[in-house]
Amino acid sequence: MLDPVQLRSFMAVAEAGSFTAAARGLGLGQSTVSQHVARLEAAAGRRLIDRDTHHLSLTTDGEAMLGFARAMLAVEDRARAHFAARELHGRLRFGASEDFVTSRLGRVLESFVRDHPAIDLEITVALSGTLHRMLDDGLLDLVLAKRRLGRPRGRPVHREPLIWAARSPDIADPARPLPLIAFPPPSITRAAAIDALDRAGRAWRIVCTSGSLSGLKAAADAGLGVMVQPRSMRPQGLVEIGPGPGLPALEEVEFIIEDVSVRRPPDSPEARAARILTEALVVGGIWRSP
Protein backbone atom coordinates (compact mmCIF):
# COMPACT_ATOMS: atom_id res chain seq x y z
CA MET A 1 0.00 0.00 0.00
CA LEU A 2 2.78 2.43 0.89
CA ASP A 3 5.30 3.19 -1.85
CA PRO A 4 8.69 4.32 -0.44
CA VAL A 5 9.07 6.88 -3.24
CA GLN A 6 5.73 8.43 -2.35
CA LEU A 7 6.59 8.31 1.35
CA ARG A 8 9.84 10.19 0.74
CA SER A 9 8.04 12.90 -1.22
CA PHE A 10 5.36 13.20 1.47
CA MET A 11 7.95 13.40 4.23
CA ALA A 12 9.92 16.04 2.31
CA VAL A 13 6.77 18.17 1.92
CA ALA A 14 5.89 17.80 5.60
CA GLU A 15 9.39 18.78 6.72
CA ALA A 16 10.01 21.57 4.20
CA GLY A 17 6.55 23.09 4.65
CA SER A 18 5.92 23.48 0.93
CA PHE A 19 5.78 21.45 -2.27
CA THR A 20 8.23 23.83 -3.97
CA ALA A 21 10.93 23.46 -1.30
CA ALA A 22 10.40 19.70 -1.11
CA ALA A 23 10.75 19.32 -4.87
CA ARG A 24 13.93 21.40 -4.85
CA GLY A 25 15.41 19.32 -2.04
CA LEU A 26 14.54 16.04 -3.76
CA GLY A 27 15.71 17.19 -7.17
CA LEU A 28 12.24 16.53 -8.65
CA GLY A 29 9.61 18.61 -10.38
CA GLN A 30 6.89 20.10 -8.18
CA SER A 31 4.20 18.33 -10.20
CA THR A 32 5.93 14.99 -9.60
CA VAL A 33 6.01 15.55 -5.84
CA SER A 34 2.34 16.58 -5.90
CA GLN A 35 1.47 13.38 -7.78
CA HIS A 36 3.38 11.27 -5.25
CA VAL A 37 1.45 12.82 -2.35
CA ALA A 38 -1.87 12.49 -4.17
CA ARG A 39 -1.23 8.80 -4.85
CA LEU A 40 -0.24 8.22 -1.24
CA GLU A 41 -3.48 9.86 -0.09
CA ALA A 42 -5.41 7.66 -2.52
CA ALA A 43 -3.65 4.53 -1.25
CA ALA A 44 -4.33 5.47 2.36
CA GLY A 45 -7.89 6.53 1.63
CA ARG A 46 -7.36 9.60 3.81
CA ARG A 47 -6.50 13.23 3.28
CA LEU A 48 -2.99 13.80 4.62
CA ILE A 49 -2.33 17.47 3.85
CA ASP A 50 -4.57 20.54 4.06
CA ARG A 51 -3.34 23.17 1.66
CA ASP A 52 -4.36 26.44 0.06
CA THR A 53 -2.43 29.10 -1.84
CA HIS A 54 -0.75 30.44 1.30
CA HIS A 55 -0.57 27.66 3.87
CA LEU A 56 0.16 23.96 4.22
CA SER A 57 -0.48 21.79 7.26
CA LEU A 58 -0.76 18.10 8.08
CA THR A 59 -4.10 16.59 9.00
CA THR A 60 -4.34 14.25 11.97
CA ASP A 61 -3.94 11.33 9.56
CA GLY A 62 -1.02 13.16 7.98
CA GLU A 63 0.76 13.42 11.33
CA ALA A 64 0.26 9.69 11.82
CA MET A 65 1.51 8.94 8.30
CA LEU A 66 4.62 11.08 8.91
CA GLY A 67 5.53 8.89 11.87
CA PHE A 68 4.99 5.72 9.86
CA ALA A 69 7.00 7.15 6.95
CA ARG A 70 10.00 7.96 9.12
CA ALA A 71 9.99 4.52 10.70
CA MET A 72 9.53 2.63 7.41
CA LEU A 73 12.15 4.63 5.51
CA ALA A 74 14.61 4.31 8.37
CA VAL A 75 14.26 0.53 8.18
CA GLU A 76 14.70 0.61 4.41
CA ASP A 77 17.82 2.79 4.72
CA ARG A 78 19.31 0.48 7.33
CA ALA A 79 18.62 -2.54 5.14
CA ARG A 80 20.32 -0.87 2.17
CA ALA A 81 23.24 0.18 4.37
CA HIS A 82 23.61 -3.31 5.81
CA PHE A 83 23.95 -5.00 2.45
CA ALA A 84 26.22 -2.27 1.09
CA ALA A 85 28.43 -2.13 4.16
CA ARG A 86 30.97 -4.66 2.92
CA GLU A 87 31.53 -2.57 -0.21
CA LEU A 88 31.85 0.79 1.51
CA HIS A 89 35.34 1.73 2.70
CA GLY A 90 37.07 5.05 3.15
CA ARG A 91 36.90 8.24 5.17
CA LEU A 92 34.01 10.68 5.68
CA ARG A 93 34.78 14.08 7.19
CA PHE A 94 31.51 15.34 8.66
CA GLY A 95 30.87 18.78 10.14
CA ALA A 96 27.92 19.78 12.35
CA SER A 97 27.08 23.12 13.92
CA GLU A 98 27.11 23.55 17.68
CA ASP A 99 23.29 23.65 17.82
CA PHE A 100 23.02 19.92 17.18
CA VAL A 101 24.89 18.94 20.34
CA THR A 102 21.56 18.53 22.19
CA SER A 103 19.69 16.92 19.28
CA ARG A 104 19.34 13.34 18.07
CA LEU A 105 22.46 13.67 15.96
CA GLY A 106 24.42 11.32 18.23
CA ARG A 107 21.91 8.51 17.69
CA VAL A 108 22.07 8.90 13.91
CA LEU A 109 25.86 8.87 13.90
CA GLU A 110 25.93 5.85 16.20
CA SER A 111 23.70 3.93 13.78
CA PHE A 112 25.82 5.01 10.79
CA VAL A 113 29.06 3.84 12.42
CA ARG A 114 27.47 0.53 13.41
CA ASP A 115 26.16 -0.12 9.89
CA HIS A 116 29.37 1.02 8.16
CA PRO A 117 32.31 -0.07 10.32
CA ALA A 118 34.77 0.23 7.43
CA ILE A 119 34.10 3.97 7.05
CA ASP A 120 36.36 6.19 9.17
CA LEU A 121 34.02 8.95 10.36
CA GLU A 122 35.76 12.19 11.38
CA ILE A 123 33.50 14.73 13.11
CA THR A 124 34.04 18.48 13.40
CA VAL A 125 31.75 20.61 15.57
CA ALA A 126 31.93 24.34 14.82
CA LEU A 127 29.88 27.37 13.86
CA SER A 128 27.93 27.15 10.59
CA GLY A 129 30.03 29.84 8.90
CA THR A 130 33.24 28.07 9.84
CA LEU A 131 31.91 24.75 8.51
CA HIS A 132 30.99 26.30 5.17
CA ARG A 133 34.51 27.69 4.80
CA MET A 134 36.03 24.31 5.67
CA LEU A 135 33.81 22.65 3.06
CA ASP A 136 34.90 25.20 0.45
CA ASP A 137 38.54 24.60 1.37
CA GLY A 138 38.18 20.83 0.90
CA LEU A 139 38.58 20.05 4.61
CA LEU A 140 35.11 18.49 5.00
CA ASP A 141 32.99 16.16 2.87
CA LEU A 142 29.56 16.77 4.40
CA VAL A 143 28.11 19.60 6.50
CA LEU A 144 24.94 19.88 8.60
CA ALA A 145 24.40 23.53 9.46
CA LYS A 146 22.05 26.51 9.55
CA ARG A 147 21.54 29.32 7.08
CA ARG A 148 19.55 32.54 7.10
CA LEU A 149 16.54 32.62 4.80
CA GLY A 150 17.25 33.58 1.23
CA ARG A 151 20.82 32.30 1.24
CA PRO A 152 21.63 29.85 -1.58
CA ARG A 153 23.82 27.31 0.19
CA GLY A 154 22.93 23.68 0.72
CA ARG A 155 19.83 21.49 0.60
CA PRO A 156 17.15 22.73 3.02
CA VAL A 157 15.70 19.98 5.20
CA HIS A 158 13.91 21.95 7.92
CA ARG A 159 12.87 25.48 8.85
CA GLU A 160 11.85 27.00 12.16
CA PRO A 161 11.98 30.30 14.11
CA LEU A 162 14.73 31.52 16.34
CA ILE A 163 13.76 32.42 19.91
CA TRP A 164 15.12 34.38 22.85
CA ALA A 165 15.97 32.08 25.77
CA ALA A 166 16.96 32.94 29.31
CA ARG A 167 16.73 31.74 32.88
CA SER A 168 13.97 34.26 33.57
CA PRO A 169 12.04 36.88 31.56
CA ASP A 170 13.17 39.48 34.10
CA ILE A 171 16.56 39.65 32.40
CA ALA A 172 15.02 41.54 29.46
CA ASP A 173 14.42 44.84 31.29
CA PRO A 174 13.28 47.36 28.61
CA ALA A 175 14.94 50.18 30.57
CA ARG A 176 18.41 48.66 30.20
CA PRO A 177 20.50 47.42 27.26
CA LEU A 178 19.69 43.79 26.55
CA PRO A 179 22.53 41.55 27.80
CA LEU A 180 23.38 39.11 25.00
CA ILE A 181 25.05 35.73 25.31
CA ALA A 182 26.30 34.73 21.86
CA PHE A 183 28.60 32.66 19.72
CA PRO A 184 31.49 34.65 18.19
CA PRO A 185 31.25 35.82 14.55
CA PRO A 186 30.41 34.46 12.00
CA SER A 187 27.53 33.09 14.09
CA ILE A 188 24.15 33.11 12.35
CA THR A 189 22.18 33.40 15.61
CA ARG A 190 24.39 36.27 16.80
CA ALA A 191 23.90 38.20 13.54
CA ALA A 192 20.13 37.56 13.55
CA ALA A 193 19.80 38.80 17.14
CA ILE A 194 21.81 41.97 16.57
CA ASP A 195 20.00 42.76 13.30
CA ALA A 196 16.59 42.37 14.98
CA LEU A 197 17.57 44.56 17.94
CA ASP A 198 19.07 47.25 15.72
CA ARG A 199 15.94 47.36 13.53
CA ALA A 200 13.81 47.73 16.66
CA GLY A 201 16.07 50.44 18.07
CA ARG A 202 16.76 48.32 21.17
CA ALA A 203 20.04 48.90 22.96
CA TRP A 204 22.15 45.79 23.61
CA ARG A 205 25.53 44.65 24.86
CA ILE A 206 27.47 41.40 24.63
CA VAL A 207 28.04 40.03 28.13
CA CYS A 208 29.38 36.58 27.18
CA THR A 209 30.94 35.08 24.06
CA SER A 210 31.64 31.35 23.78
CA GLY A 211 32.37 29.03 20.90
CA SER A 212 30.51 26.18 22.58
CA LEU A 213 26.83 25.74 23.32
CA SER A 214 27.66 24.43 26.79
CA GLY A 215 29.49 27.69 27.52
CA LEU A 216 26.53 29.79 26.42
CA LYS A 217 24.12 27.68 28.45
CA ALA A 218 26.28 27.99 31.56
CA ALA A 219 26.20 31.77 31.23
CA ALA A 220 22.42 31.75 30.69
CA ASP A 221 21.92 29.39 33.64
CA ALA A 222 23.85 31.89 35.77
CA GLY A 223 21.39 34.60 34.78
CA LEU A 224 23.96 36.68 32.89
CA GLY A 225 21.80 37.35 29.88
CA VAL A 226 19.74 36.17 26.92
CA MET A 227 20.79 33.75 24.18
CA VAL A 228 19.25 32.93 20.79
CA GLN A 229 18.55 29.40 19.58
CA PRO A 230 16.24 27.57 17.16
CA ARG A 231 13.02 26.86 19.05
CA SER A 232 13.38 23.06 19.02
CA MET A 233 16.91 23.36 20.41
CA ARG A 234 16.22 25.54 23.43
CA PRO A 235 18.53 24.24 26.18
CA GLN A 236 16.83 22.58 29.12
CA GLY A 237 16.39 24.85 32.11
CA LEU A 238 15.90 27.98 30.00
CA VAL A 239 12.54 29.52 29.09
CA GLU A 240 11.44 31.18 25.87
CA ILE A 241 10.88 34.90 26.40
CA GLY A 242 9.34 37.54 24.15
CA PRO A 243 8.65 38.87 21.75
CA GLY A 244 7.42 41.88 23.66
CA PRO A 245 8.29 45.48 24.53
CA GLY A 246 11.88 46.05 23.48
CA LEU A 247 12.34 42.40 22.54
CA PRO A 248 11.54 42.01 18.83
CA ALA A 249 10.47 38.84 17.05
CA LEU A 250 13.34 36.94 15.47
CA GLU A 251 13.61 35.56 11.94
CA GLU A 252 13.38 31.93 10.91
CA VAL A 253 16.41 29.89 9.94
CA GLU A 254 16.80 26.88 7.71
CA PHE A 255 18.71 23.72 8.48
CA ILE A 256 20.69 22.60 5.45
CA ILE A 257 22.85 19.71 4.34
CA GLU A 258 25.69 20.36 1.92
CA ASP A 259 28.30 17.97 0.57
CA VAL A 260 31.08 17.80 -1.98
CA SER A 261 29.61 14.99 -4.05
CA VAL A 262 29.57 17.23 -7.11
CA ARG A 263 33.37 17.45 -6.89
CA ARG A 264 33.90 13.70 -6.62
CA PRO A 265 32.98 10.72 -8.80
CA PRO A 266 29.45 9.66 -7.75
CA ASP A 267 30.65 6.12 -7.05
CA SER A 268 33.58 7.22 -4.87
CA PRO A 269 33.49 6.00 -1.23
CA GLU A 270 33.21 9.58 0.07
CA ALA A 271 30.29 10.45 -2.21
CA ARG A 272 28.45 7.21 -1.44
CA ALA A 273 29.00 7.54 2.30
CA ALA A 274 27.85 11.18 2.19
CA ARG A 275 24.62 10.19 0.42
CA ILE A 276 23.88 7.44 2.96
CA LEU A 277 24.54 9.68 5.97
CA THR A 278 22.52 12.50 4.39
CA GLU A 279 19.46 10.27 4.07
CA ALA A 280 19.92 9.07 7.65
CA LEU A 281 20.04 12.68 8.88
CA VAL A 282 16.91 13.65 6.95
CA VAL A 283 14.94 10.59 8.07
CA GLY A 284 16.21 10.90 11.65
CA GLY A 285 14.74 14.38 12.10
CA ILE A 286 17.77 15.46 14.16
CA TRP A 287 16.47 19.03 14.67
CA ARG A 288 13.90 17.72 17.16
CA SER A 289 14.91 17.72 20.77
CA PRO A 290 15.47 14.28 22.36
Rank of each mutant, 00 (worst) to 15 (best):
E251P: 14
R148F: 04
Q35V: 10
P235A: 03
R107G: 15
S103A: 11
R148D: 07
R133G: 11
T59M: 10
V33N: 01
C208W: 06
A71M: 10
H158Q: 09
Q236K: 08
I276V: 15
E160K: 02
F10E: 03
E98M: 04
L58A: 13
G201I: 00
M1S: 13
I123T: 14
R47S: 14
L135A: 14
H132F: 13
A81L: 00
V157N: 08
F255D: 04
R39P: 10
P4F: 01
A193G: 10
V113Q: 15
Q229E: 15
P248H: 00
A81R: 01
T32W: 05
V262P: 07
R86I: 02
P161T: 03
A193I: 05
K217H: 12
G45E: 09
L127R: 09
V33D: 00
R78H: 06
A69Y: 00
M65E: 11
L162R: 02
D267W: 11
D170W: 05
D61E: 15
S289G: 08
V75S: 14
H36M: 04
A64C: 06
S103V: 05
V75E: 15
A84N: 13
S261D: 13
V262A: 15
F19I: 13
L135N: 12
M233C: 12
P161N: 04
L121M: 08
I181E: 01
Q35R: 14
P174T: 06
T60N: 07
D259Q: 09
R39V: 03
P186W: 01
G211W: 02
E160T: 04
G211F: 02
A79E: 12
R86A: 15
T32G: 06
H158F: 15
H54M: 08
L26N: 00
R263T: 09
D120M: 01
I171A: 10
D221F: 03
V253P: 06
P248S: 00
T102N: 11
T60S: 14
S268Y: 06
D120T: 08
T59A: 07
G242Y: 00
F19M: 14
M1I: 07
L66F: 05
T189K: 03
R288T: 11
R78G: 13
A12M: 00
T60C: 05
G215N: 08
T20K: 08
R46V: 06
A222W: 00
Q236M: 06
L224A: 11
W204M: 02
E270T: 10
F112M: 07
P152M: 08
R205I: 07
R133T: 14
E160I: 04
D221K: 07
